[in-house]
Design a protein around this nucleic acid. Structure first.
Length: 611
DNA sequence: CATGCGACTTGCATACATTGTG
DNA sequence: CACAATGTATGCAAGTCGCATG
């Protein structure tokens, strides 16, 4: 392993209080392995940003020691009480345990929109019948003759009862959860106790895909210890499977970071138990990600020049690649891998765009060369955007669309794999998603510069921060459903604003009167009264302003989700530096979990940090 | 080179906890 | 102090990307 840490970092091992020579790679390795989160790394004044990268680490080793308790398994099914019935064709029917369990999955979801969808119903019924006994199968032939309402009611009631539990009972449940967290929620990694991200297996239930998923409603089977692969160190205490059970396999693979895995039966994909983002392993990876993005900053101009050049290439392949890269760069589109048809919802990213997803307008609303995008991206979130593009891009798009059907691929000579190979040639470690990280982070930095007012109070600065954050979220198309309470809380705010305006009007009147009074009487008392009224007026005006900005903020944030960009795309050091520079407490920007996740950045960044 | 698999990151929804307010 | 509003944690689906395989 080679770490290029430059001469700008001091490392301080806090435990012992010793200072380490940063040039010693042995100590660096020790440092990296054992005390990452206890180390403060600071930059010397006047240098241009800290940086360290590693070459492919020696044979991909991720840890030396790993010990844990294995996953916590979802609780077993509890049969329904005798008085809760399932009816088929109007007649009460006692179901076998397995059949009943699956019936409860459906019953629980009855008031969800999902259950009205035909695909969901068919998939569910199909899978349900597979688990029925021969007798049940003979009777239960149509879903529309099944009556789950009693089952549904039972669970609704149960939920209510749980909510209405006395305080002590709730406390007990909480303590039980904490006990579980203590017992299963941590592992020992290279001598340090680290929090695990997800230590429970996923409970059985009905699969709910996003968007128009062809597999919605299918039965997600219960995970048994016999399905689970355990990964730990050879010399650690190997986790005990639950009594009477065996693990599928125990392996000792220190080139991967997961603690346990199993194969899920819907998509046949592997699920993992991994560490919490606060862990050293994840933190370092995160740091590395932003360092790659910062390296892109150094070469992005060259790359932009290059793809503009490639727009004129004789090779169609190259042209497609160059136009796609332009979109990825300019619009922060995702790469867009190929997907197996019929297995997942029909969504696309850049490379998998189809002709039907864009419309070309030579002129629109007084602008030239407009591309209108309309497609479903990740999680079936709609991407809709009208963008003016440079003329060669427009011409190329016309060319790519010639003689194609709406369902044909726009970039038929391009795959994510060839694109990424190309990017790798342009810069070590460069892939399509790095552009998203880079553009998100650089946008935040720029917007913060533009929007922050040093004279503002903390609240106003935070508003500016949120605005900058929002600019990024919009760039990355991070959307959310309008909160259910949105209209109402907006109304409440409006009521407050109206009331404030009323107060303000009254205060103005009073000031006027006081002034008039002071003019006539000229007494000290009446003068001080004027001052008092003036002060009140100013206070009210400020309060009104604050309410109005709050309302704007809320309105603008209606359908924008800030969380994803904050957690995954914005180099936290930008935010930390901003906080330090403008005297905003970090806690106002990052909550406890976020501060844990970004501990590395909090240690590292000073106000001079530049992305 | 197409395809599938494995590992890991990213993403939204919802459940739950805490805080603010009448 | 109850209840709504808001903030945080959890859940798990759905991406990206590298690599093995034929």
């Amino acid at each position: 392993m080679r770490i290029n840490i430059g001469n700008r970092l001091w490392l301080k091992k806090v435990v012992s209080g010793m200072w380490y020579d940063t040039k010693s790679s042995h100590l660096l390795n020790t440092w990296r392995r054992q005390c990452f989160w206890l180390v403060t790394a600071q930059r010397r004044k006047g240098s241009a940003g800290s940086r360290w990268q590693e070459e492919k680490s020696e044979d991909g080793v991720k840890w030396k020691q790993l010990e844990h308790k294995g996953p916590y398994f979802a609780p077993l099914y509890e049969p329904l009480p005798d008085e809760v019935h399932f009816y088929y064709d109007g007649k009460a029917m006692k179901l076998s345990l397995a059949t009943e369990e699956i019936a409860t999955f459906y019953g629980k979801m009855l008031d969800h929109e999902y259950t009205t969808k035909e695909v969901f119903q068919n998939n569910f019924f199909n899978d349900w019948r597979k688990e029925m006994t021969v007798e049940e199968k003979k009777i239960i032939k149509h879903l529309n003759k099944c009556d789950f309402t009693e089952i549904h009611k039972y669970f609704v009631d149960k939920n209510e009862a749980r909510k209405a539990l006395p305080k002590e009972e709730k406390q007990k449940l909480k303590e039980e959860a904490e006990r579980l967290q203590e017992a299963f929620g941590y592992c020992i990694l290279d001598g340090h106790r680290e929090k695990i991200g997800n230590f429970k297996t996923e409970p059985p239930g009905l699969f709910r895909g996003r968007g128009d998923h062809p597999k919605m409603g299918m039965l997600k089977k219960r995970i048994m210890p016999e399905d689970v692969i355990i990964n730990c160190s050879r010399d650690s205490k190997i986790p005990e499977p639950p009594p009477g059970h065996k693990w599928k396999e125990v392996r000792f693979d220190n080139t991967v970071t997961w603690l346990a895995s199993w194969t899920e039966n819907i998509q046949n994909s592997i699920k993992y138990i991994m560490l919490n983002p606060s862990s050293k392993l994840k933190g370092e990876k995160d740091w590395q990600k932003y360092e790659v993005a910062r390296r892109l900053k150094e070469v992005v101009d060259k790359i932009r020049f290059q793809y503009r050049f490639d727009w004129k290439s004789r090779e169609m392949k190259k042209r497609q690649r160059a136009v796609a890269l332009y979109f990825i760069d300019k619009l922060a589109l995702r790469a867009g891998n190929e997907k197996e048809e019929g297995e997942t919802a029909d969504t696309v990213g850049c490379c998998s765009l189809r002709v039907e997803h864009i419309q070309l307008h030579r002129e629109l609303d007084g602008q030239e060369h407009i591309v209108e995008f309309d497609f479903l991206g990740k999680d079936s979130i709609r991407y809709y955007n009208k963008v003016p593009v440079e003329k060669p891009v427009f011409k190329n798009l016309q060319l790519f669309m010639e003689n194609k059907d709406p369902g044909d691929e726009l970039f038929d000579r391009l795959t994510t794999s060839t694109l990424n190979k190309h990017l790798q040639d342009l810069m070590d470690g460069l892939t399509a998603k790095v552009f998203r990280t880079y553009n998100a982070s650089i946008t935040l930095q720029e917007q913060l510069k533009v929007l922050t007012n040093a004279e503002d109070n903390v609240a106003a600065k935070i508003l500016s921060y949120n605005r900058a954050n929002r600019a990024v979220a919009i760039l990355c198309n991070h959307q959310r459903a309008t909160p259910k309470t949105f209209e109402k809380s907006m109304q409440n705010l409006q009521t407050k604003i109206d009331a404030k305006k009323e107060q303000l009007a009254v205060a103005k009147q009073e000031l006027k009167r006081a002034k008039a009074d002071a003019k006539v009487r000229k007494s000290v008392k009446s003068k001080s009264n004027v001052d008092k009224k003036k002060k009140l007026l100013a206070k009210l005006e400020e309060q009104l302003m604050r309410l109005c900005t709050q309302a704007t903020d809320k309105e603008e944030n209606k359908q924008v989700a800030l969380g994803t960009s904050k957690l995954n795309y914005l180099d936290p050091r930008i935010s930390i530096a901003w906080c330090k520079k403008f005297g905003v407490p970090v806690e106002k920007i990052y909550n406890k979990t976020q501060r844990e996740k970004f501990a590395w950045a909090i240690d590292m960044a000073d106000e001079e940090f530049e992305f």
